[in-house]
Write a protein that binds this DNA or RNA. Sequence first.
DNA 1: CATATCCATAAGATAAATCTATGGTTCGAT
DNA 2: ATCGAACCATAGATTTATCTTATGGATATG
Lengths: 306, 306
Amino acid sequence: MNLSFKQLQAFREVMRTGSISEAARALNRTQPAVSSLITTLEAELGIDLFERNRGRLIKKPEAQFFLEETEAILERLNHCTKTMKEIADLKEGRLRIACMPASSQFMMPRLVADFVRDKPQVKVSLMMRASAIIEEWIASQQFDIGLAETPAPSGAIKTETFELACICALRSDDPLAEKSIITPKDLSGRPLATLQEDHPNLLATQAAFKSAGAQFNARFELRNFQPALKLVEEGLCYCICDPMTASSYYEYQLQEQALCFRPFAPEVHLSVAILQPAHRPASELSSAFIDILRADLLAINQQFQT
Amino acid sequence: MNLSFKQLQAFREVMRTGSISEAARALNRTQPAVSSLITTLEAELGIDLFERNRGRLIKKPEAQFFLEETEAILERLNHCTKTMKEIADLKEGRLRIACMPASSQFMMPRLVADFVRDKPQVKVSLMMRASAIIEEWIASQQFDIGLAETPAPSGAIKTETFELACICALRSDDPLAEKSIITPKDLSGRPLATLQEDHPNLLATQAAFKSAGAQFNARFELRNFQPALKLVEEGLCYCICDPMTASSYYEYQLQEQALCFRPFAPEVHLSVAILQPAHRPASELSSAFIDILRADLLAINQQFQT
DNA sequence: CATATCCATAAGATAAATCTATGGTTCGAT
DNA sequence: ATCGAACCATAGATTTATCTTATGGATATG
């Protein structure tokens, strides 16, 4: 089987125009070139497609059948290359994203919306889960991109870590809002909403308080910072939360913002990471999305550091 | 769009084996050859299909998609060439045959049956009609092959004429059966079954009688010779009929043949023809069938000339 | 640390496609 | 009839594409 697309294209053109010379003109080739293409095509198929009668070509019934196949193949090929071009231009494709709760409500939807605005053919799966689940999904290649708390190193996951500087959430009418930077001393003994148990972020916060000689009063222990802001709004506590959660607050609480955020010193981090399946290259689409995701994470991390 | 099947085959093999070197071995090419095929393929698609990581190839998700398309195209092409081979070997195709009554009952079915015995994929339409209808069907290209009485010359029909020597049908117990050749003199004044009105065959028969000085007694006028044999069996008449009709008699009247046939002199012909649409080449299948049809007509024409 | 395997590249060799030139045939119009 | 314009096929020259050999760099394996 040594056919070529050129032969098929030449054959199609000959069938359309009814003559080799005409087809040659349409294809910007010389007549002998097309003649040869047809001859070798017939030889490879083992059957004559045209009858050479009195110096002219006459289509044989077999040619009609072969034309249908030819059209189908060329059409498919054409469509396929077009699709690949679309994929190359990021106009088409599939993107499966799994993200942690802090980013799921506003940040990630906003990024996805911006990203796909000019890509009507791109399909997106966007799932919110706890970081541990996201790890599994990425490791098992069920998702292309994950945003989660930094997992333990694993051969199955490629990570790009971001140390998000946590900031202090407090009521705008709180006296502490006067300060441009909040320290453990400021919050000494005051009720806090924190992450639970042995979360690295909690440990780091406790360490900051301890080394500053401040009293650490964890009143609310939560799985993540999202619900904490309501508690702060109610005046029940303070919260040293990650900037993604803080940023979300501005995105949904557009008017009458009861809360404000202040940098916290010393820096306490929440370590998050962009996750990708290892041993499998990212699609062009993934890479492009990760670019804007990275940029947004860096921007959010800066947003509250004045 | 300048892709080639070679590139697709190479790509498929690389996807299967996971490496260029392996694929090259499978394809009986050198590794650089395959490498180049893949490179140019990527260039023409405008997108990388593999990631070159630490000296190895890693499939990108885009490659997976493209593979599906590639498989489909190659599969279709493969199937198509196979079918063309079948067609070339006359193992596949379509044959539309229209035949006149004299040949429809035994001769043509027998020929078709012989022809398609080893061609299970060949589809046949076999229709019996009066010669005038067959002409129309062939001229309008509704049928590929016609067997009919020779029509008036027409630009739309290609004809191959056979002058069938008519023979005399008579009862085996008739005294005339003793003779090896029947002449108009033998039948002078005796009742005949003939074709009707101004049919050339009737006119020719009448002329033979006249020039022999014999009396022509047309007792039964029929549209064709088939029913005549029954009348001869009943002893009601003689019939100078065409050899196809006579041959049919042997094919269905296997035992107790009440009739016999004798050559008639001078020769009186029934002119029949194989018809094909003009300005359209025959399929390989048509040509092949016409070959055996021609042979059979010649054989039948000899059969009664002892 | 040596060895084997992988891929890419370059240069030369081979094969394929294309073009130019030509001749034969048919058809239509002088 | 004869001429000219189409048509197609073939042959030889030329360009283009493809393959191979040779080589070097990178990475795994034992």
